[in-house]
Amino acid sequence: MASDGVVVEIGKVTGSVGTTVEIPVYFRGVPSKGIANCDFVFRYDPNVLEIIGIDPGDIIVDPNPTKSFDTAIYPDRKIIVFLFAEDSGTGAYAITKDGVFAKIRATVKSSAPGYITFDEVGGFADNDLVEQKVSFIDGGVNVGNATPTKGATPTNTATPTK
Rank of each mutant, 00 (worst) to 15 (best):
V134K: 03
D55F: 14
G53A: 07
F124E: 00
K33M: 04
D58I: 12
T147H: 08
I23M: 12
G151N: 14
E86D: 01
R105T: 10
N142I: 14
E50H: 08
G11A: 08
I80E: 15
V130E: 07
V48L: 07
D138A: 11
G34A: 06
V25K: 02
S32D: 10
R28G: 07
D76T: 05
I104W: 14
V6C: 02
G57M: 13
D70N: 15
P65S: 14
S32C: 01
D119P: 01
K67F: 10
T107K: 09
I79W: 14
F136H: 12
K150E: 11
K78T: 04
K150M: 04
I60Y: 15
N47M: 15
P31E: 04
F124H: 00
V108S: 12
T155A: 13
D39E: 01
L129P: 01
A92P: 03
I10L: 07
Q132V: 06
A85K: 02
G57H: 04
D58E: 15
G122I: 00
T14G: 06
F136Y: 04
P160A: 10
T90I: 15
F27M: 13
I79S: 01
F101V: 09
K150T: 10
T19R: 06
T20A: 10
T147E: 13
P75K: 03
T149R: 11
N127K: 02
R43E: 15
V25P: 03
Y115N: 06
T19H: 12
I104Q: 03
N145D: 09
Y44L: 03
V6F: 15
V130M: 15
G144A: 13
T90D: 13
S110N: 05
S32Y: 10
D4I: 14
P113Q: 04
D70C: 14
M1L: 06
T161A: 10
S16V: 07
A152E: 10
V30F: 02
A112E: 08
I79D: 02
G122L: 00
I104F: 15
N145Q: 11
K33H: 15
D39Y: 01
E22F: 13
E120D: 05
I59H: 14
T19D: 08
Y115D: 07
E131L: 01
Q132M: 03
V7W: 14
F40W: 15
V7Y: 05
D55C: 13
D119K: 03
G5I: 15
T71E: 01
E120F: 04
V13S: 12
T161V: 10
N47R: 06
A2E: 02
N127M: 02
N37A: 14
Q132I: 04
G15R: 10
R43K: 10
N47F: 11
Y44E: 14
G114T: 09
V108I: 10
L49K: 15
F118A: 07
L49N: 15
I54P: 05
R105C: 07
K78G: 13
D138Q: 13
I52A: 08
G11F: 05
D138G: 06
A72E: 00
S16K: 11
N64Q: 15
V41A: 01
I137K: 12
T71M: 03
G89Q: 01
K109E: 04
K12D: 12
I137S: 13
N37Q: 00
I51N: 09
I52Y: 10
F40H: 08
D76H: 02
F124Q: 00
F136A: 13
N47D: 11
G151V: 14
I137V: 11
P160C: 09
E22V: 04
P63L: 15
L49H: 13
E86N: 00
A152N: 10
Y26P: 09
R77W: 15
G122N: 00
I52L: 07
T159E: 15
G15F: 05
K109F: 15
I73M: 02
I104Y: 14
V25E: 02
P148R: 07
T71P: 00
T20Y: 11
Y26Q: 05
K78P: 01
G122M: 00
R28P: 10
P75T: 03
I51A: 05
V81R: 00
G99F: 05
Y74M: 01
V61E: 04
A158T: 08
D45G: 13
K103A: 06
P113E: 11
I54K: 00
A102L: 14
V41Y: 00
A72Y: 00
I80K: 05
L129E: 01
V130R: 14
G151E: 10
T117W: 07
T157R: 11
K78W: 02
S111H: 13
A112N: 05
G114R: 11
G140V: 12
T155L: 10
D62H: 15
V17A: 10
I52Q: 04
V13F: 04
F136E: 05
A112M: 02
P46V: 06
K133H: 12
G11V: 09
S88G: 15
A146H: 08
G5A: 06
V141F: 14
T90F: 15
G151A: 12
S32A: 08
S3C: 03
F84R: 02
S68H: 15
P63H: 08
L83N: 01
I95G: 02
F69E: 02
D4T: 06
K12I: 12
V121D: 15
F84G: 00
F101I: 10
K103R: 10
D58K: 02
E131T: 05
G123F: 00
G89S: 02
N47Y: 04
P46R: 08
V61R: 05
F40T: 02
P65G: 09
T107C: 05
A112I: 12
D98K: 15
T149M: 06
G57T: 09
A106C: 14
T159L: 11
G29Q: 13
A72M: 01
T155G: 09
D98T: 10
P24H: 03
G18I: 14
P113W: 04
A102F: 07
T66W: 14
P154G: 11
F82N: 03
V100I: 10
A125K: 00
P154D: 14
A146I: 12
T107W: 06
I23Y: 07
N64T: 11
D70R: 01
N37F: 00
N156V: 10
I54C: 03
G99L: 11
I80T: 05
A85F: 15
Y115A: 12
I23C: 11
D126N: 14
A94R: 08
G114K: 09
V108L: 10
G99V: 10
F84C: 02
N127G: 03
G151T: 14
I54L: 04
T90L: 08
I95P: 09
G18M: 08
D128T: 07
K133F: 08
S88I: 03
I59Y: 07
G18S: 08
A146D: 11
P148G: 03
V41D: 01
I79T: 01
S88L: 10
G89E: 00
C38W: 01
I80Q: 09
A146P: 13
P31V: 15
D39L: 00
I51V: 06
A36R: 00
A85R: 01
E9D: 06
I60A: 15
D128K: 04
Y26F: 06
K33N: 11
K97M: 05
D55R: 08
Y26L: 14
I52D: 05
A146K: 12
G140F: 10
E131G: 06
D119M: 07
P160T: 13
P148D: 04
E9A: 07
T153L: 11
F84A: 02
V7N: 05
F69S: 07
I54E: 03
S3A: 15
P46L: 06
F40Y: 10
I23Q: 12
K103S: 10
I73H: 09
G5S: 14
I73P: 00
P65K: 04
V100Q: 09
A158V: 10
G99Q: 14
A92C: 06
T107D: 10
A36S: 02
G151P: 12
P148K: 05
V30R: 10
D128L: 04
A106H: 09
G53E: 12
L49Q: 15
D98A: 12
I23P: 08
V6P: 06
V81I: 10
V134F: 01
I73F: 09
L49E: 02
Y115H: 07
D119Q: 06
V13I: 11
V130S: 12
V134D: 00
V130D: 03
T159R: 09
A102D: 06
G89M: 03
A94W: 00
F40P: 00
K109L: 08
T96A: 11
V134W: 00
L83R: 00
T149D: 09
G139N: 15
S111P: 09
G123I: 00
